[in-house]
Design a protein around this nucleic acid. Structure first.
Lengths: 350, 350
DNA sequence: CTGAAAGCGCTTACAG
DNA sequence: CTGAAAGCGCTTACAG
């Protein structure tokens, strides 16, 4: 458009040159109200007008100032995403799913990784984002005042994972129960009789659902193990290691099912240390199908959840809410799938 | 502040209530110009005034509209971060380092994961961010027009990794040469004679530095291998697998050093398949010290780089540039460290 | 279908 | 050290 490289033109527009709606208006001969209307695809603008305005926008390379439109009541086209962290593959995948759709739909994403009440409420009030995607974990519940602020200002939001108990917000869920149920049936097939479930924290919804699904799966398969003990970890490798260590000090088990792969990794590490063979002495399985599970020795049997798709679905739903004013109440449940590898005792071709 | 739960008060302020600078001004009895000054810590405001204004801000719970301040020439307190992806641990760690400092310094971060020229230039012109953090990989070079736009508008930016050749922007670097040099010395200790280096893409700066460091390390140790072959991958597991497969079809090697851990994983996987023992038949080492490397069998010898710190350093530098108007030209080089595990042949206590 | 005008909530010369 | 006023670049009733 403007040749920056050829030095001598630059002088007067080094920092200031900004094409505004006024330039567009005067170039195409319509008012800026009209320009604004076509930019926002409002509808009732004569097609020929739309065309001329769009030509002007294009030829000027006009980019609306999002600050200005946000201030005057328009949209900022940015969505805040609140995640506990991005270091676990699970969250990184979510984020990449969200981002993929954001890019495609021309939204920006603002990332927040701390449940910092003040910062969040500031963000709500700052006019900076159009909506929120919230990952709710039992671990660090989303602040209540923050949710109140959101509702109060009428800013749409959605949960990845179950909303807080009293809240019926839109949400993207996965079939925790179904995945664990498949695992249980597989356990029944192996005829495991002394089973340890290494759960997440006591109040964690995902973990509770997985345990629940596991139990009904067992009973559906009419498999009645001698015992089904439950220990609690915090989803970390270290906690899986610790849990199985304590459990094994007191009891013996055929098999341990962990509420996620990181804890399963911890369990396998403990077994390696003690010379306990997996799966010959004890089977170990997980949940998530994290990157590394396939490369463990033995390769981990686990439940795959569509992490990327969860993020994508969340962003899609937000875009719909924002742009099509679709009914706010809405849940989507994404499927999970048992992935059988060798840590359960299958495939002796190790 | 306002009791949302007790329904009957809500009626009139359900969506609108916003505390503005005017409210603050009238509460404390100063003009909004003054309020603005204290908010922006401009300096020449009488201390007693500052105090009264701050009291008013606090008691009203006032949050400035970032849209308004951005529009009127102020700052948006948000930094754009451009990353190729977040799915690899390397980028996820960077991001978490960036985020940690952003939170602490009260900045927001806007995440961009595609090198989409138009979207980026729009962002530059949209007034939405104060600065950019750019991860430059040889793979997907940062668009030139985008950089031009940045400079033209005077928006500060910084690279993680080497800037493009002709560019002397601030950057956060790691000591690729030093890390690979340590690895080379270790190789000399093992007396490996037939060495394969699985590099990144041909024009990749990190990979080239690692190869360079490896070579000078070898010569410093006066170790002269019979051969040092180089194959190129793309940093993916699959490419490591592929590279070593081709290499092994034509030659034999004592040891292979991979430019990152994912390719080392691929190499180890190929060896597993072929029944080639690592490290007895061939040693395999990597670079990065990714999460999984410790849990591989054999545990991977690799070079650790401080990923989180890189992100943190980047954000810190941006904040300094923005707030203290520190000189723009600046580089920081962070150290790397050899982590010796067993895939190189050390620690036979497997 | 289109335009004139007010207003969104700040910041920043300018004047004192 | 402080204030009155203009202006940033949009959007949105309101009127036609």
């Amino acid at each position: 458009m403007i040749n920056i490289e050829s030095g001598y033109i630059m002088k007067q527009n080094t920092e200031e040159s900004r094409v505004t709606i006024d330039h567009v208006a005067s170039l195409c001969g319509f008012s800026k109200a009209t320009v604004s209307r076509v930019m926002n695809k409002e509808g009732n603008v004569k097609p020929s007008t739309v065309e001329r305005v769009e030509d002007a926008i294009r030829s000027l390379g006009y980019i609306p100032s999002s600050a200005a439109s946000a201030l005057s009541g328009g949209k900022s086209r940015t969505i805040a995403v609140l995640l506990p962290d991005v270091m676990t593959e699970y969250y990184a995948s979510l984020l990449s799913g969200v981002e993929a759709i954001a890019e495609e739909s021309n939204y920006n994403i603002l990332l927040k990784m701390r449940n910092n009440k003040k910062a969040l409420i500031d963000l709500v009030n700052s006019n900076k984002v159009d909506a929120f995607i919230l990952r709710n974990t039992g671990l660090q519940p989303v602040d209540h005042d923050f949710l109140v602020a959101l509702k109060r200002r009428g800013i749409p939001f959605l949960f990845i994972g179950k909303p807080p108990v009293d809240d019926d917000s839109p949400a993207i869920l996965i079939d925790n129960v179904g995945g664990a149920r498949q695992m249980a049936r597989h356990y029944a097939g192996h005829n495991f009789r002394k089973i340890l479930f290494i759960a997440g924290p006591k109040d964690n919804l995902d973990s509770n659902d997985r345990l629940y699904g596991f139990k009904i799966g067992l009973s559906e398969a009419e498999h009645n193990p001698e015992k089904l003990d439950v220990m609690h970890g915090d989803y970390s490798k270290a906690s899986g290691y610790q849990a199985i260590r304590e459990a094994l000090d007191a009891n013996t088990y055929d098999a341990v099912f962990c509420a996620n792969d990181h804890m399963a990794l911890g369990a396998i590490l403990l077994c390696r240390e003690r010379g306990i063979r997996v799966p010959e002495d004890v089977a170990v399985t997980g949940f998530d199908d994290t990157f590394f599970s396939e490369f463990l020795l033995p390769p981990l049997t686990t439940v795959q959840q569509p992490m990327h798709e969860i993020g994508a679905a969340a962003m899609e739903m937000i875009v719909q809410i924002l742009e099509r004013h679709v009914p706010r109440e809405h849940k989507i449940i994404l499927p999970t799938r048992l992935v059988i590898r060798q840590s359960c005792g299958c495939g002796h071709d190790l």
